[in-house]
Design a protein around this nucleic acid. Structure first.
Lengths: 340, 340
DNA sequence: TTGTAAGCGTTATCAT
DNA sequence: ATGATAACGCTTACAA
């Protein structure tokens, strides 16, 4: 039922190969021929059969984006950017949700979706430095995030230590001295939490402040609920504090909610800051101070690195480590005047 | 480089067809043969070439989900559900963002991604009733949302009039009399806004309350920013009101923010309610009263309808109109005690 | 229960 | 500048 190249060729009075040439932008075609072919294509409503092309050319024009969960605002926003930028590169994006489960992240690496995708942008949450070797996969891949550094593939991330340090410096410059940190994952020496924690420690040290273990709160999944719970634990413990740094925005928003619902004023009594600059931070009450990790730049860099690997031009180039630019956005929750 | 069926067959000492049979679960195979084949598959790390299968069998195992924007929390959460449920049905999901642009929504209908997808779940935002005919596409499709009813394809939605009526009834039962509505799109007689507006009018009528045109506020894109702006306009107009109904949650959250930042207490001075039950509504301050439109049920129904059409068993069945169950969730923003 | 042969729609090679 | 022909890896008759 669908129209094939053969039919287009017949109607245009040319061979299949010529149609193929026209479709693929092969330059050496007489203008007359080209327009006859294009007419036939339009008239018949021809649509290239991607499966056939893929089988023959062994590329599909599809890339996979593997993220933990689309419900996490950061990953929804990241996915939006990757899809948009992939489109600019004539690529279609297939999203895999790993649920942050180790098994599913590993499965992703060994399957590669049966030759279906030309490359993968992978944002792991369960795999860690020990698994770096497993990233030696037989297809182009770009790694995101802070779980694995110096692995065998191109990697895009930001300088989490520096970014986190800036947040805490900002809190300190606002007069805060007892800064709680929410979202610690203590059994991990690496990863996002560890890096942001290090930035926190460095900023405290710079200011001559001693870190207090009771101000460092673990929080399970990094969502609003865990942020609220941790904050309530902190409040119940009776420990004094004048600021909360949520290791991501949803934790911070949960903290905000817990504080306000116990009658604590933000930023007057306690300042709150987060990390990620998700859209919601500009619309919470008060608006949330946070760090923009340069989502668009990350997405664009990742797609471009992947494309260059897919083209196979850089086979000799060693894995690249790219750091995107971050930017602190002071907002109401830390006592700044209203801003965008 | 990749392993083919041929190689598996050679190693197992059988024909390609037998390997194919094993892979596809064809029942009449001797156990000995089957296990030899499976061994070979494991040993060689064989991965089916999906392009080849698709070309031959003309199905890919991929469905497309077309949504306006992944950054809109409702659609992020819907996509998460569709991907998860599609997985249960051995389907992979490819997400198309239409940007709510008419051109791109139309393009989607005429391309169908070049035979790449076996079916499409389409949530339009720009197309309307007049475009119903265009849904007569040569591939299985399931329609979501409130833009087009009684079109030529299966359709999943909820009873928006009834759901909206319940929200407003709830506000009235809490003693509210001057209920503002934010998010009206006045030039449209159909679609989500029109239906929810009708529910609003019906609930007012039931209670013997006269609708006031100055309480009905248009809002452009349904996001936080538009919700906040509209609320500020309302406040500046000097019109009295004791409740705000945002036609979706992000509008309501924007309203909440505008109210609180002008020192208006919620729910004491003004009650606020939204629509969609996005995760954030459970973590705002105060938590937001809203309607759960049954996202999981919508996703599941959509996938199941699509699968049944893809199997071609229901070719004779007329387009089905399915309504998912909604549920009102009263929370703090309308004066209820704290709930989940 | 398993094998043989044909062909899905495209692109690559090699002519012309 | 264009055409003929052979793959690509799999499934589907049909045979055996």
């Amino acid at each position: 039922m669908p129209v094939t190249m053969r039919e287009v060729a017949q109607r245009a009075g040319v061979s299949v190969k010529t149609v193929s040439n026209v479709v693929n932008g092969y330059p050496y075609i007489r203008e007359a021929t080209r327009s006859r072919v294009i007419e036939a294509i339009d008239a018949l409503g021809y649509q290239m059969n991607i499966s056939a092309r893929s089988l023959r050319a062994s590329r599909t024009g599809i890339i996979a984006l593997a993220v933990p969960e689309l419900r996490m605002p950061y990953f929804a926003e990241l996915s939006e950017a990757v899809i948009r930028i992939a489109r600019e590169n004539d690529l279609t994006v297939l999203i895999e949700q790993t649920g942050a489960e180790r098994e599913r992240e590993l499965a992703l690496l060994s399957s590669a979706r049966g030759h279906l995708v030309d490359g993968v942008i992978f944002s792991p949450l369960a795999l860690g430095a020990d698994d770096a070797d497993r990233l030696n996969v037989p297809f182009p891949m770009v790694l995101l995030g802070e779980r694995i550094f110096r692995g065998p593939v191109d990697h895009v991330s930001i300088d989490n230590v520096a970014a986190s340090r800036e947040v805490v410096r900002h809190l300190i410059s606002n007069g805060r001295r007892r800064i709680a940190l929410i979202g610690m994952i203590s059994h991990e020496g690496v990863g996002t939490a560890a890096l942001r924690f290090q930035g926190y420690l460095e900023a405290l040290a710079e200011a001559g402040l001693a870190p207090s273990p009771e101000l460092v709160l673990p929080a399970g999944p990094w969502n609003r609920s865990a942020g609220a719970e941790a904050t309530n634990r902190l409040l119940d413990s009776g420990v004094e504090f004048d600021a909360v740094f949520g290791l991501n925005d949803t934790l911070a928003l949960g903290a905000l909610r817990a504080l306000l619902s116990r009658g604590i004023r933000v930023p007057n009594d306690v300042a709150v800051a987060g990390f990620d600059d998700i859209e919601e931070t500009r619309f919470s009450t008060p608006t949330l101070t946070t760090v923009d990790p340069g989502r668009d730049q990350i997405a664009r860099t990742a797609v471009e690195l992947l494309v260059s690997r897919m083209k196979g031009q850089n086979d000799e180039v060693r894995p690249r480590e790219i750091f995107a630019d971050y930017a602190l956005h002071p907002r109401q929750s830390t006592g700044e005047p209203l801003t965008g």
